[in-house]
């Protein structure tokens, strides 16, 4: 018998059982956009508008092709830097979660994974009408493919419990809200 069979044969098949009750979440009060902003603030991240975004454009900025399509200020921007050496990474997102202040990024079709990871400053473009209340909706809408939820900046508290942002990924995460609410 190979390992696969040995292991599987020692595991039970099981009978069908009743479904379990759904976990009951505390939902953020008020509009999801406001709740999302509040959660971001608690994480030490903040929202910026398109004008402020324009201030981050420079020779060491990396703009994902997809993000370039979404914000006028980024239209036609040409990357001049190696992504590994970029100081600012600007990327688009597919979803955001009000309850936790998370954004969801999907790899592929003009979005890389490194753009939201390698540069010390990461700007994420979030559509107001793509913000959902909680993880419950986010996982129902989970896009196919390789996806990540990002909640605030990369962080560690390994040295004496002192919280330090930017251990490997971005030290600073900024969210640029675009579009209208539904």
């Amino acid at each position: 018998m190979n390992a696969r069979e040995t292991i599987l044969n020692s595991c039970p098949l099981g009978e069908p059982t009743d479904p379990w009750p759904a976990p009951y979440f505390v939902l953020p009060p008020g509009s999801v956009v406001e709740a999302f902003k509040t959660s971001l603030n608690l994480l030490g991240a903040r929202t910026i508008d398109e004008n402020e975004l324009a201030g981050y454009i420079g020779p060491k900025t990396w703009v994902e092709p997809n993000a370039g399509l979404e914000v006028n200020a980024l239209n036609g921007f040409q990357n001049q830097v190696d992504l590994w050496d970029a100081e600012v990474g600007i990327a688009s997102t597919v979803l955001a979660i009000a309850q936790t202040g998370s954004v969801c990024v999907k790899s592929g079709q003009g979005n890389s994974r490194l753009a939201t990871l390698a540069p010390p400053i990461n700007i994420l473009i979030v559509h107001r009408n793509k913000i959902v209340p909680s993880l419950l909706e986010a996982l129902e809408l989970l896009p196919d493919g390789n996806v990540a939820f990002i909640t605030g900046a990369s962080r560690t508290a390994d040295i004496e419990g002192v919280l330090v942002p930017g251990i490997h990924g971005p030290k600073e995460v900024l969210v640029c809200l675009v579009g209208g609410e539904h």
Partner: peptide, 21 residues
Amino acid sequence: QLLTTYVHFIKSPRQERETDG
């Protein structure tokens, strides 16, 4: 925390339309 900073959903090796991974 309410959620860890990163949650990765790894589905497949790099696909045609992906530039890294």
